[in-house]
Design a protein around this nucleic acid. Structure first.
Lengths: 103, 103
DNA sequence: TTCAACAGTTCAATATTCCCGAACTATTAA
DNA sequence: TTAATAGTTCGGGAATATTGAACTGTTGAA
């Protein structure tokens, strides 16, 4: 069973966080997660077409950037945004990014 | 002589802008440019060690992301931040990023 | 005028990173 | 048990990034 490692936010450098957000698919996932309580990997996917290994890698990257945490629930993995922690680490950043996702 | 193309900001997608910022060297350059009127390429460099071809590529990428504009002045190229235009395109984004550069 | 030095770009080869199919692990339901 | 489901990991090809070398254009000096 996969046991995930979630970084402490103070160990996440800004450029890693920006890199995680600098991809349309990941950005779409973050936007989705921002408006829900928690989503399985496949439900977090931005579209049907994306292969699941790619999806898994995107989520791993979001985890490494401190943006999401993943918990196992049965055979699903539930992903949630680490909103408060991320906001404390990078004040205003996620708000600014999300506010610009629809343009 | 190099004649640069500067994109219209409305043609710059968010992920390209984030990608441009998601690199320590480029981020450092943007931060520098944010606190000056205009800098030659070599003066904009974040450190001595970076090769000039690499530097040139970083600046090209920043140009493509609508973050800077470059004008020839003698044998130098003067780079300036397209602050107002960028802010109009992505409100609050650059502020949020710059506010987090020193952590 | 040349000529040399300078600021930066472009090119091409190497190095790095990313993507995704295939194989695998773990969990649940039958 | 077995089959189906949900997702991870691995490995190789595709795409990007880095950088030395050669080049373009500009300036100042002889």
């Amino acid at each position: 069973m996969p046991r995930f490692t979630h970084p402490r936010l103070e160990d996440v450098p800004l450029d890693l966080a920006l890199h995680a957000l600098a991809d349309p698919n990941r950005l779409g996932m973050v936007a989705r997660l921002a408006s829900t309580e928690g989503l399985s990997c496949s439900d977090a996917a931005p579209c049907e077409a994306i292969p699941k290994s790619t999806l898994s890698n995107h989520l791993k990257l979001l985890r490494a950037a401190g943006l999401i945490e993943t918990a196992q629930a049965g055979r699903e993995m539930i992903n949630t945004l680490r909103r408060d922690e991320f906001d404390r680490r990078f004040p205003g950043l996620l708000d600014a990014v999300l506010a610009n996702t629809s343009s």
